[in-house]
């Protein structure tokens, strides 16, 4: 593990870590405040393939050595692991239930989301955040989102979304104020789906 970092350096991160992360953070805040609304990040990075530029920008903005990340086996390539270790210092969690952040392909979310930490009544902020990697913000099974941040309901259908996924996310929302907050990332955009959003999907 030692010589790997030495022989093949990881891909580059933000060119200005402080300002780039601050600009991305502002957009990520906006994404959570207006659920299901795709947003373009002002900065992306030359990320390892399995993570993608948006997933990598989210990771570099949100993670540091005091957070624990769980990576789905499809994401946990050597390049990604080394990239995150170098640029964020984030600690790998052994299982999804011990993580502050969980990164997964959207297809794995149905089985992973129910295992994440949802916070406690005293500290609902200690819930995990999930990053769902997708090919784009349309083409999947649609859901109608409403609630805080949305003046009128919006339709949201990220690629790879299924009715089973919306069903899991509805259960997540039913736990509010506990529950997981989700980001969808890929295809040039990110979108947020906080636990406070009400979800209706066609197949119910």
């Amino acid at each position: 593990m030692v010589s790997a970092a030495m022989i093949e350096p990881p891909a580059e991160g933000f060119s200005d870590p402080v300002l780039d992360a601050a600009e991305c953070f502002r957009v990520i805040l906006g994404a959570l405040a207006t659920p299901g609304t795709p947003m373009r990040l002002p900065r992306t990075v030359a990320a390892p393939d399995a993570l993608g530029p948006e997933g990598a920008a989210l990771a570099l903005t949100l993670m540091d050595f005091e957070t624990r990340v769980w990576l789905h086996p499809d994401i946990a390539t050597e390049a990604v692991v080394r990239y995150l270790a170098f640029h964020t210092g984030v600690v790998r969690a052994s299982e999804a239930g011990a993580a502050d952040f969980a990164v997964m392909p959207i297809g794995a979310a149905v089985s992973v989301l129910p295992t994440l930490v949802v916070g406690t009544a005293d500290y609902p902020d200690r819930a995990a955040s999930a990053i769902l990697l997708t090919d784009g913000m349309d083409g999947g099974a649609p859901a109608r989102l409403s609630g805080p941040g949305l003046a009128a309901p919006v339709d949201f259908a990220p690629a790879g979304a299924t009715s089973a996924l919306w069903s899991v996310l509805r259960e997540n929302a039913a736990r509010f104020p506990l529950g997981v907050d989700c980001f969808f990332a890929g295809g040039g955009a990110v979108a947020g789906l906080p636990r406070s959003t009400r979800i209706e999907s066609g197949e119910g």
């Binding site: 970092a5 030495m6 022989i7 093949e8 350096p9 170098f86």
Partner: peptide, 14 residues
């Protein structure tokens, strides 16, 4: 700080 030493005909070194 981290730099990469580029080398002709050999792997770069961090």
């Amino acid at each position: 700080c981290t730099v990469v030493l580029e080398r002709d005909g050999a792997a770069a070194v961090a």
